[in-house]
Design a protein around this nucleic acid. Sequence first.
DNA 1: GTGGTCTAGACCACG
DNA 2: GTGGTCTAGACCACG
Lengths: 139, 139, 139, 139
Amino acid sequence: MEINRRSYVPLHIQLADILRRRIRAGDLAAGSTLPTEHQLATTYGISRDSVRKALAVLRSEGVVMTTRGEGTRVRAVPERRRIALGPGDEVVIRMPTPEERAEIGIDEGVPLAVISRPGEPDEIVPADEVKFTGGGAPQ
Amino acid sequence: MEINRRSYVPLHIQLADILRRRIRAGDLAAGSTLPTEHQLATTYGISRDSVRKALAVLRSEGVVMTTRGEGTRVRAVPERRRIALGPGDEVVIRMPTPEERAEIGIDEGVPLAVISRPGEPDEIVPADEVKFTGGGAPQ
Amino acid sequence: MEINRRSYVPLHIQLADILRRRIRAGDLAAGSTLPTEHQLATTYGISRDSVRKALAVLRSEGVVMTTRGEGTRVRAVPERRRIALGPGDEVVIRMPTPEERAEIGIDEGVPLAVISRPGEPDEIVPADEVKFTGGGAPQ
Amino acid sequence: MEINRRSYVPLHIQLADILRRRIRAGDLAAGSTLPTEHQLATTYGISRDSVRKALAVLRSEGVVMTTRGEGTRVRAVPERRRIALGPGDEVVIRMPTPEERAEIGIDEGVPLAVISRPGEPDEIVPADEVKFTGGGAPQ
DNA sequence: GTGGTCTAGACCACG
DNA sequence: GTGGTCTAGACCACG
């Protein structure tokens, strides 16, 4: 699993692929911190800039999370709690605006679920913390 | 609505904010083409690189879509078709892997809905084309 | 075997790959004429310019041969005649200069073999028409 | 040594000729970097596209080598090591497939020598790094 | 700031 | 009607 400079695949995409695979394989465990950008650059023989782009890709996928001054960690995928939808309920999925991200405290690369129930204000939750099912109480 | 060089907010984030607002306001209509990267750079007095970063932000939000050689267009948000969930059905939302993106032909910044119904193979759809409701037929 | 616009592989490289495979498979036989540039562009849904680049790639590999006003044909690979090298003989391979190409009447993408035998003038032959072996008469 | 727009010789061929001559004359030394595409376009009063085509010609001849983000350099022709062929040995020259190019790490415009010796697996080497002679040990 | 890809569209040369 | 040349101009990847 190495960088191939003759490939048409951009270096940062190659690195993102490698890291994604290492994460899936458990080699980089959920919650663990990735090597520093500098280390990754040295290890894989690419520029730090390409490393940063690779991490941005993984962030936008919700795979890792970067905290300034601390590093990049593998996002621990939360347990999903079940939400039952009744006949009149409606759920729409979309990406958050940056303001919503800040407000709700949602990580980059995590979609939003907007749950509308008749007679109630909309509820907005990070879509990776829930799963939806039918069979909720009818209104 | 201008770039403020004294602000701590990065220039590309400022530009992304400005463009997002112009899009919401209808100043940049759905389906319309944004000014070229070069024009945006000149108009707002920032580097083309910052412009590119701003566009990457909007792409990852599913707000715009870039086609090589053609330009960047405001994504037309599709009509959402309604999907009713029965008691045993389950929906999980997540971001697609790059392979899924390629396979399903899904734009950047668009989440995925995985619909599991008992006795049927999982169905995977772009989450911005659907909305979910309860009251589906029980299995 | 289709063009994948989401791939990082350039369109013209993808088309070159497709055509190379069709040629190897015998679907496009040696000596046969390829579809016109326009037809290829329409068939594969890319611009004529990308088609032209794909053909240039195949030409530089000696796989096809283009004649103005006639079209592009699959090169018939010639039988290779055997040349035996003696102890003092020497063979150097290189790409021809354009003048040599014109002079010797050699197709694009075909290397040149320069055979030096003691006491004789150098012999220059298209390298795809010969194969070399040892065991030639010593000088 | 200038571009002649009245000539029937295509502009990019004229430029390729000019650059080839400058390289042969040592004006552009082996290993040195050519002017940027933009500079060449300005210097010779042609479009960047014609410049790019001229460089593609020189690349396919193995005369120059382009590295993305760095520029185009005059290829340093390597020393050729001598390979002696015995009576049963056989050498065939051909252009590499793109996969072989990637695998062997061979530059564009460099032919391949396939050396078959009885009882041994084929050996594949860049043809510009070797020269062949007879008089090898018989098998 | 480097080279790379892609497109559209103009006109040219050849058979 | 074939392929060939040439340009302008867009975005992309990398350092």
